[in-house]
């Protein structure tokens, strides 16, 4: 087994009835071969399909609802500690936040926890009812906090909502979370497995650069045009500080990027670059020769919404 790396943690937030559980069940169906630990903080009418999690060799764990500062924080933290310390830790942890929890606080645990790394914060909103909730004096602040925490907002149930409601929901989301990517769907149909870091953690040293479903250089659409992806090959060494600046300025339509570059200071040394959940990490790649391991190819995969910049545009931005 490879040495344990930090486990990516993602949070799925959103109000009661927004489609969180449906999305989670889809993720579990869609991503085969990945061991998820699913932490459920929302005890709704729908249940996570525990068998589905078990089929993946993972676990479903519940944790206490309530004040994040008191019981809930403790319950969440001890659960995460247990997962991180396991001999056979999961590949990815997904937390289904309660309808009134602030997803950012949960994601922040992963930022601080040495055994975890923060991945995606995705917030689902019911396109039909969100604007009504945002006007409700009881619920207003809760839905705003959630939107503000999101790397990505998914307007769900668009099949049930009128054009006007969808337009209003879009405008509301853009106002609350201008930096978040925005996606519209129904029945929580999102190829979320494309957005999560599923090839990190334990597989980090072993796996090749995980190309998009249709792995070719250029621009690929998948899942009914839901996401686009682009592969950019960067053979020339880059100035890492400049790269950092460029990547931090990418438009919200880019949801995720991952790949390897070599630095100008030491072209023989590879760096792993990951952009996930609006967080950028650039870290030296441990090239310590391992028999049979082919050095990863320089280049980067970008995944985004269909309006993301094409490969050529990205190459230009990166100055390659």
């Amino acid at each position: 087994m490879a040495a344990a790396g930090p486990i990516p943690l993602s949070v799925i937030g959103g109000f009661l009835g927004a489609g969180k559980t449906t999305l989670l069940n889809r993720l579990l169906q869609g991503a085969s071969g990945i061991r998820f630990a699913v932490i459920v903080n929302d005890f709704g009418d729908l249940a996570i399909d525990g068998d589905l999690v078990a089929d993946h060799g993972g676990d479903t764990i519940t944790f206490a609802n309530g004040c994040l500062c008191c019981t809930m924080g403790d319950s969440l933290l001890s659960t995460l500690n247990d997962l991180a310390r396991r001999d056979d830790p999961p590949d990815h942890i997904v937390v289904e936040a309660s309808g009134v929890a602030d997803p950012r606080q949960i994601a922040d645990v992963a930022v601080l926890h040495p055994g975890l790394v923060r991945d995606l914060v995705l917030v689902l909103v019911d396109a039909d009812t969100i604007c009504e909730r945002a006007r409700d004096s009881r619920l207003k602040e809760t839905v705003i906090h959630q939107a503000e925490a999101a790397d990505m907002i998914v307007l769900n149930k668009c099949d049930l909502a009128s054009e006007q409601h969808i337009a209003d929901a879009r405008a509301w989301a853009a106002e609350q979370a201008p930096r978040a990517a925005l996606l519209e769907t129904a029945h929580a149909r999102i190829a979320i497995e494309r957005l999560l870091t599923l090839d990190s953690g334990h597989g980090i040293g072993n796996g090749p650069l995980r190309a998009p479903a249709v792995a070719h250089i250029g621009h690929a659409h998948d899942h009914a045009n839901q996401f686009s992806s682009a592969v950019v090959i960067l053979e020339a060494p880059l100035d890492l500080a400049a790269l950092r600046g460029v990547l931090n300025d990418l438009p919200p339509s880019i949801l995720r990027a991952k790949g390897f570059v070599s630095s100008r200071e030491d072209p023989s040394r590879l760096h792993l670059v990951q952009l996930s959940g609006r967080r950028l990490r650039i870290e030296p790649w441990p090239v310590a020769a391992r028999a049979g391991v082919v050095p990863p190819r320089r280049g980067r995969v970008f995944v985004g919404t269909p309006d993301m910049p094409p490969a050529a545009g990205l190459t230009r931005r990166l100055g390659a």
């Binding site: 994040l68 500062c69 809930m72 924080g73 403790d74 933290l77 001890s78 500690n81 606080q105 922040d108 645990v109 930022v111 601080l112 926890h113």
Partner: peptide, 16 residues
């Protein structure tokens, strides 16, 4: 915040 507070307490091995 909860995350910072609990992890600080965790770092010294205390669980209230």
């Amino acid at each position: 915040g909860m995350p910072a507070r609990f992890l600080a307490l965790g770092a010294i091995g205390r669980d209230h």
